[in-house]
Amino acid sequence: MRGTNKVGIGVGFILIMVWCLLPVAWIISLSFKSQEAITAGSPGFLPTSGGSAGFQNYVDVLNDEQFRRAIFNSIGICLIATALSVILATLAAYAIARLEFKGKRFVLTTALAIAMFPVVSLVSPLFDMWRTLGIYDTWIGLIIPYMSFTLPLAIWTLSAFFREIPWEMEQAAQVDGATSWQAFRKVIVPLAAPGVFTAAILTFFFAWNDFVFGISLTSTEAARPIPAALSFFVGADPFNRPASLLAAGAVVSTIPIILIVLVFQRKIVAGLTSGAVKG
């Protein structure tokens, strides 16, 4: 009984690893196929011996002005949206977790409704509004929708987190002679920081992943983020998509996500699970 159990878990472990990593390995492998081999057709998982391009695809992608600009846009827009969203969410989550006020239910219901909102149905009105306001195809034009769509997630995660903080510690520190600023900075901030951090990571993921706003609220490389740039990337021959170049671009755009996952793995899991289901 124990033995079969262990074997089952071992097999499950391997299956999970294959599930998660095989497509990643595939896109990396594809990014090393040479463009000539792609045009001629090179089926199979690994590049053939004559069809490998080395790092040439990466060099080409990084030399592409539009792609570089898209990376810059994505990083800038996502960082700003994340910072602002987390600040607003922290204020709201503090109020929801610690204060009793009229309209709390309304805020929570609105947040829940927005988490389920069909993003595409906003494309036509926002397109129209943003053009009237003159923020179509600008960073701000993307930062605003990213903020409003990440706020629900951030508010949930943070309010769940703030509920668990032993706030009496603040009074305890004051009784021990700390000023209220010291009590806040030395006691509350270190306790709240991990939650704020989780919310920030999840917000960044969402903004980095967005595609609908990215393609519909931009028209030039002035603000076009990576997912949109990748989908519009056709290369020299529009009838033959440069698969290996695209794969190299895809790998580059995934590196920030992998780095974040590697460094903050524990926090992301805690944040995802505490925010959504808690009895």
Binding site: M17, L21, V24, L30, F205, S253, I257, I268
Partner: peptide, 30 residues
């Protein structure tokens, strides 16, 4: 295992779409 399971979650949907489109492609897929 947790790091691995977060990778599909974090990957851009567009990238996932491309990866699978090329995987299923009859000229360059596997």
């Amino acid at each position: 295992i947790r790091t691995s399971i977060l990778i599909p979650y974090g990957i851009i949907t567009v990238v996932s779409g491309f990866a699978w489109q090329f995987a299923f492609s009859n000229t360059n897929g596997f």
